[in-house]
């Protein structure tokens, strides 16, 4: 395991609780993430892993506990929320590109509005990002004209255009055809190698094993087990983890 700088965690989560009405979705999650770490979160559906990752940029509000991202605590204060969102990029399962805007506009919208960059600068950086994700020729197209894999790569470029310190991936390959999964995972691998801090909710265990620094197994709203990929893979300590791994790996 790469042992990165352990002094200053960029994300600190302490005792996160979240309820949907009566349903207790998160039950006291604790996690600290160092700069440059790649975290993979997996677990059965309904285990709270997506909810957890969405609390980190406040798409979901936590009701108890403390979340500090890059030194800013997430509270009701809108300024704090906006500051954290500037520092975190997010990639969704359903891509969520803006269908009325071209690929280029999708990527440059936020830099233009939030960072107040000039149009030239925003477009130049957008082209660099499109080249990085391998689809510079699609810049003028609209999202509806692209394949799922291409759309997800645009979504990654859009998130990166904010020049975030942290990238959150919420099941980025779950809505893709098998042949398109690889092109997205390749981009994510390259991103991880460049030193980006990443939190990834995924069931792609091959990716997890190759790229992740730490694995977290979620069930029933809490972390059941965590550790480096090889240990969790070859020698899970908890029966629940063993069962789940055997189920997703048997084919």
């Amino acid at each position: 395991m790469q042992n990165k700088n352990t002094s200053d965690p960029i994300i600190i989560c302490r005792d996160i609780h979240k309820w949907y009405g009566e349903f207790h979705a998160l039950r006291g999650v604790d996690m600290e993430v160092q700069i440059g770490e790649v975290i993979v979160i997996f677990g059965p559906s309904g285990s709270g892993k997506s909810t957890f990752i969405r609390t980190i940029n406040r798409l979901e509000e936590h009701q108890r506990g403390q979340i500090i991202v890059d030194g800013i605590e997430l509270t009701r204060d809108v300024r704090n929320i906006e500051a954290v969102r500037k520092d975190t990029g997010m990639v969704f399962q359903q891509f969520n590109l803006f269908p009325h805007l071209s690929v280029m506009q999708n990527i440059t919208l936020s830099p233009l509005l939030v960072h107040k960059w000039s149009k030239d600068k925003a477009e130049k950086i957008a082209m660099q990002l499109l080249e990085r994700v391998g689809i510079p020729e699609q810049a003028k197209k609209f999202p509806g004209q692209l394949s799922g894999g291409q759309q997800q790569r645009v979504a990654i470029a859009r998130a990166l255009a904010m020049q975030p310190k942290i990238m959150l991936f919420d099941e980025p390959t779950s809505a893709l055809d098998p042949e398109m999964i690889k092109e997205v995972l390749d981009v994510m691998t390259e991103l991880a190698e460049s030193g980006m801090t990443m939190l990834v909710v995924t069931h792609e265990m091959g990716f997890a094993r190759a790229v992740a620094n730490r694995l977290f197994f979620f069930d029933e709203g809490n972390i059941i087990e965590s550790g480096n990929p090889e240990d969790i893979y070859n020698n899970p300590q908890k029966d629940r983890t063993k069962l789940f791994l055997s189920q997703i790996l048997q084919h």
């Binding site: 940029n57 969102r85 975190t88 997010m90 969520n96 803006f98 936020s110 939030v114 998130a159 904010m162």
Partner: peptide, 18 residues
């Protein structure tokens, strides 16, 4: 308009008005 559009817009840092 799907909830995902609001979420994506918030996630790239746009405020409510934007």
């Amino acid at each position: 308009i799907s909830q995902g559009q609001y979420e994506a817009a918030h996630a790239v840092g746009l405020n409510g008005f934007q």
